[in-house]
């Protein structure tokens, strides 16, 4: 009987392993999944193949889409739930609604990874960005500029945006 209990506990440990790897079960993930591949949407996921060696970011994920009231409501609710215990870095409101927001999520104890959510809703267009990286909030703007520079200069020439 004791042996059986030990076997069951061992198997249950697999559930825990899945959780400590990264804070990936965010509500904004559902926004990316639900709307990312719809018509009119642009979903970008940048990984180590582009980011490594150029920025401190480990993961960059963004969604740009034509906005509507249900989408805005779902996204702002998801952001609100995900940033609980975290920090608002920048937030601008218009008519009581969030127009721009930069947020840093609450870190797990001992974790070196920071997570950020960037949000903008203006002129019927919504942009949602999720970033994982080993840099503090004070360095967020610098890292975003690094990323921009990575793409804007090709062969040391500044390219035109399309």
């Amino acid at each position: 009987m004791k042996q059986r209990i030990l076997i069951l506990l061992f198997i249950l440990s697999f559930f825990r392993v899945g959780n400590v790897m990264a804070q990936t079960n965010l509500e904004v993930d559902k926004i990316f999944e639900t709307y990312g591949k719809q018509k009119g949407a642009i979903l970008i996921e940048l990984s180590t193949d582009i980011l490594a060696g150029h920025t401190q970011m480990k993961l960059y994920k963004s969604l740009t889409i034509v906005s509507n009231d249900p989408l805005i409501a779902a996204t702002t609710t998801a952001i609100k739930n995900d940033i609980e215990g975290g920090m608002k870095l920048i937030e601008t409101l218009k008519n009581g609604n969030t127009e721009t927001g930069y947020y840093c999520l609450k870190r797990k104890e001992g974790a070196s990874m920071y997570e950020y959510i960037l949000y903008k809703e203006k002129s019927k267009k919504m942009t949602l960005i999720y970033i994982q990286g080993h840099f503090s909030p004070q360095q967020l703007e610098k890292e975003l500029n690094k990323l921009k520079d990575l793409f804007i200069y090709v062969n040391n020439k500044r390219i035109k945006l399309q």
Partner: peptide, 14 residues
């Protein structure tokens, strides 16, 4: 399933 959401190594655009 959780690992899938981890960094896959390849960048993608949809």
């Amino acid at each position: 399933f959780n690992q899938k959401k981890e960094v896959s190594g390849q960048s993608i655009v949809y």
